[in-house]
Design a binder for these strands. Structure first.
Lengths: 189, 189, 189, 189
DNA sequence: TATGAATGAGAGTTCATTCAT
DNA sequence: CATGAATGAACTCTCATTCAT
């Protein structure tokens, strides 16, 4: 890890924290610079604009999430176990990374979120999507549209993570397992 | 309906449309005024500030939603039917009012959403919460925290409504009924 | 006193209080209306504009002051006694009416104060000026320009009244008399 | 003198001129920027707000005035000569710097003038106050409250300077000396 | 690479004034 | 006479972005 990517990461981290706390609108570039301990100008060396910075942050968080999911992937297991593991990992990742979950959620709910911004992450998403497709074809899970499945897994997990971060619900391992079970039962055929 | 509440409503409507399209940050007060066909200054006659305007919009949408849910309420039916009807109505309301669903979702994902902003709506939410409580006690639905139940019903419905509005998924009556059935099966004991 | 002049007076009184507390700039017409217990619009029935309202207030305060001075006037006394009494009354009036003193001072220090605004009060000021002129000619007081004499009497008194109102100095009767004596000694020949 | 303090000074100078001409209320930040030949935004780099700018201007003028008075200070002279010189310098400084005198006067007559704003200048005022204190104790000048002495010297000088600037009175050296003599005679024991 | 002073457009908000009622 | 909703220009202040150093 060289100095360049260090500073880039520091800026991204500062942006993540500030936007989660104050929203897109409440997060001025000058504040990001102060939080990151760099000058305002240098941000424009690493990112084209504020919009670009936010998009890059989103992409990097999606990339990290997808890497975490792929790491748990085991092709030697049965497809049912693979899918089950996938859903479990999605839940656990969101709950373990509430800052990331919160940002992704806020981003997706905002006008920053366009088809274009998502197409860049297709490469990371593809393996997971194709796994889900296979499971549908083999009759392991219900034949629902991908979007519906994504909502019931990814989005539900992210929402619960945020509610947990906000102190609105207590989530112990037992409850998490129960929820994962409920979702799995709801999706499986 | 007198002129005063008319203009107030017009301003709220313009705010809803613009914020859904451009986000909180992308929606200037002057644009709201232009969209509503009023002067910029008069907004401050009806609302204290931009933040207040947004909060009032949120409150009014929550109130409308809750009224819609209460309208479908029938105490003569069995509790199971009541709960089932409630979940169905939540889905249908969100899908029928995508603008409201989208705004509520964006609001809840933003730093505007605080405990304080929700406490004002407690009066509308209470009857529904108590109905769910009763269902839990009578063993009709699973004994999950209210927040988890809210995520699996209200938030899932709102998310699907937005995905539908964004053209990401086709939701016909058959599919809606299937999803309602899935959620109901997941929650019932 | 009819209702019309009542309301006019109430508006003037509200303006006096608010401007002394918040300055010209900090005193909106709507606040004057609220303080006076009238609508914003009606002020424009009694006064042409905010500037006019402020000018009329200034004029009315100058008129009251001058009337107070003229009331103490006694042509049967010696000129020396008349002048001495005049200076004493100026002091006492300012100290007894700190709100008026404060406003006049703030007005005179502001760009509202023009030659034009003063010319309207010439009728009230004339008798006093001519009395001072006579005293100068008869060698009772020093032959200083009128402006210098006004500063050493009127303005000094107003300043002391304001300092007293602000709690910066304690002014008992003894001290007031001492100051009056000092000023008189300084001006007399 | 570096560029930073240059621009700060230019802004302060522009503010002084405009406020003397148009008052606090009539002096918009945008006008100050234009007069100073800078952008509107940069003022907020040097000053927190309009209020802060005005306070800083007041403080800098008080500081300059006090430095001018201290420069004329000569401890080797008799206390009587020191005091006399002080009063003379106050007069001459005010008459030589009518812009400063006018602003200080307008500021003191406005609601901007608070105890807090003055406490920041105590360090500059202290030496002069203690000199006056000593003179009172030694029976050189009358035992009047400091505020009264300040009014009769500082404020009278500032008022005369403004009247002179406004063309209301002609002040030649002879007259100035006469007035200084009158004030001195009034204060000395 | 890195800084931070500088820009200027545009934000939210205020307010003197008007006018239909 | 009286109201107060309505206007819209002008205000203070912010902020993404640039650029000389």
């Amino acid at each position: 890890m060289n100095k360049t990517s260090d500073k880039r990461s520091i800026i991204l981290g500062a942006t993540l924290r500030l936007i989660n706390e104050n929203g897109f609108h409440g997060t001025a570039m000058s504040k990001i610079a102060r939080e990151a301990g760099v000058s305002a100008g240098i941000i424009y060396h690493y990112f084209e604009s504020k919009d670009d910075l936010i998009l890059e942050l989103y992409n990097s968080l999606i990339k990290e999430l997808m890497n975490a999911l792929l790491k748990g992937f085991d092709n030697s297991k049965s497809l049912e176990d693979q899918i089950k593991k996938l859903f479990e990992d999605i839940f656990r990742y969101n709950l373990a990374n509430p800052q990331a979950a919160m940002f992704i959620r806020q981003y997706k709910a905002s006008p920053y979120y366009t088809h274009e911004s998502n197409s860049q992450n297709q490469q990371y998403i593809d393996p997971i999507v194709s796994c889900v497709q296979k499971a549908k074809k083999q009759g392991i899970i219900k034949d629902l549209p991908d979007t519906v499945i994504a909502v019931l897994t990814m989005d539900v997990a992210a929402l619960l993570a945020q509610r947990y971060s906000a102190g609105l619900v207590e989530l112990n391992d037992e409850l998490i397992n129960e929820i994962i079970g409920i979702i799995w039962d709801a999706l499986k055929k």
